[in-house]
Amino acid sequence: MGQRDEKDKVKSRKEKLANYFYDLSKLIFTAMVLGGMSPLLTDEFRPLYNTCMVIVGLISTYLTAYLANRILKY
């Protein structure tokens, strides 16, 4: 009975940690990618800054989602 409880605890921790990274991925996407594209609607568009912000946001989103997926797999 003790071993089964440990496995359930480990599984629960992994799921919560993976959910945390998935939520972090969504937050990064919203803040950096959509926030980086918002100056298109105003007259404050700086091409280099905004493009870099969107690219870094996309890479960070991918990496956190990938990390969450790896945590769930193993």
Results as ranks from 00 to 15, higher is better:
Y20R: 10
T64G: 03
Y49C: 06
Y62V: 14
I28D: 01
Y22E: 04
L67T: 15
I59L: 15
P39R: 09
L72R: 06
P47V: 09
G57C: 07
M32Y: 04
L34S: 07
I28C: 04
K26W: 13
L17C: 02
Y66K: 15
L17H: 00
K9N: 08
L34V: 14
L48T: 06
Y66I: 14
S60D: 11
A18F: 02
L17D: 01
L24G: 01
K11D: 04
S38L: 06
L41I: 06
I28W: 03
D23F: 14
G2Y: 07
N19H: 12
S25C: 06
Y49S: 10
V56P: 10
S60W: 04
K16V: 03
E44S: 10
S25Q: 01
A65I: 05
A18W: 01
G35P: 01
A18N: 00
I59D: 14
S38A: 10
Q3G: 06
K9Q: 12
I28K: 00
Y22V: 13
Q3E: 07
G36C: 01
G2W: 05
C52L: 14
M37E: 02
L27P: 04
T42D: 01
Y74H: 06
M1G: 13
I71E: 03
R13K: 14
A65H: 08
I55T: 14
M1D: 07
L58E: 11
L17G: 00
M37L: 11
V33N: 07
K73T: 09
C52Q: 11
I71P: 02
K7N: 06
L17S: 01
M32D: 01
R4C: 04
L58A: 15
E6M: 10
T51L: 12
E6R: 12
P47E: 05
L58N: 09
V54N: 08
Q3C: 04
C52K: 15
Q3P: 04
D8M: 10
G57Y: 02
T61R: 00
G35D: 00
V33A: 07
C52M: 13
S25K: 01
Y22Q: 08
Q3L: 08
G36W: 00
L63Q: 13
Y20D: 08
T30E: 13
L48G: 02
V56K: 13
E6C: 07
A68W: 02
Y74S: 04
R4N: 09
L58W: 11
I28E: 01
T30Y: 15
T51Q: 04
V33C: 09
L63P: 05
E44M: 05
K11W: 06
L40V: 00
I59N: 14
G35A: 00
L63W: 11
L63F: 13
G36P: 00
K73W: 10
G36L: 02
L17K: 01
T61Q: 03
R4Q: 09
T64P: 02
Q3W: 11
Q3R: 11
I28P: 00
L41C: 06
R4W: 09
